[in-house]
Design a protein around this nucleic acid. Sequence first.
DNA 1: CACTGTATATCGTGTTACGATATATTTATG
DNA 2: CATAAATATATCGTAACACGATATACAGTG
Lengths: 148, 148
Amino acid sequence: MKNELEESARLLHTLADFRYELRRFLQFSENAAQEAGLQPQQHQLLLQVAGAAHETPVTIAYAASRLGLKHNSTVELVDRSEREDLIERTIDKDDKRRAILRLTRKGRQVLQKLSGEHARELNEMAPRLVRALRRVQMHSGAQVAEVL
Amino acid sequence: MKNELEESARLLHTLADFRYELRRFLQFSENAAQEAGLQPQQHQLLLQVAGAAHETPVTIAYAASRLGLKHNSTVELVDRSEREDLIERTIDKDDKRRAILRLTRKGRQVLQKLSGEHARELNEMAPRLVRALRRVQMHSGAQVAEVL
DNA sequence: CACTGTATATCGTGTTACGATATATTTATG
DNA sequence: CATAAATATATCGTAACACGATATACAGTG
């Protein structure tokens, strides 16, 4: 059994590695979005709008909660995306306060391309991410056999 | 076998869920940092500096590569963190161009606390993250048995 | 000891997320 | 059913932050 200092150093190292892997994925994603002509956040908006469950009414509030943004930030993000013809906003017939979001043809096409790229990249990166996560878990009470 | 349209919709849903889970973790992390009196990026800086392998010289360039930032952005981040007594910068004796980074006592203490919280939270969130990742992988050629 | 490269630093700029606030519409309540 | 309370979206000013461009200091090489 290691002493506490070593344990704590190990945890730091493990967490640092996890964050590094995470950051690498996010960088890939940001680059891919930029190269497709989108701001990273626009990509995320499109994804959450297009990836919502079928019945879900995709409103500003819904997008905000999925993106972890405040409502007003989401409004601005939608504004920008609408200006660039990536997304459409229509006022809900049943509740005129709400705006329903939908992708444009262009939005769908760009997202389609990006999603393929992301699936491929995640397939590559997933093992490292999962391994990093498992290592963190080993430091959290629940001692699991380390599978490398 | 599903048709292509359904497949593509599934992938979007899967990717959206993965990003949502990821965002939730990042939000937790940002909140935790703020509540500990740090900017999220300062937390990441401390983590990468303290979590580096033992021999590694922790320079600005090293931190930049680990954080996925440009060198100048990292300089600014270090500036801010030094002002708040979280980190120290000493000029490398062997190469006076380099700045070696080290945590202050205060930096170590804050990071320690945050790391414990993160380990606990990741232990909670890891299963959902891993599941989301596995689902993405199923869409990437390598068909794996879905383990729920 | 010039010259090329590397490491860090400075400065001005643009994007973006936010708080505070406003407006419109729906829902609740007496 | 009139009006208050709640909800959804929108607007505006502000601050943080990452970046490009550029500068400076030092190191390695012929």
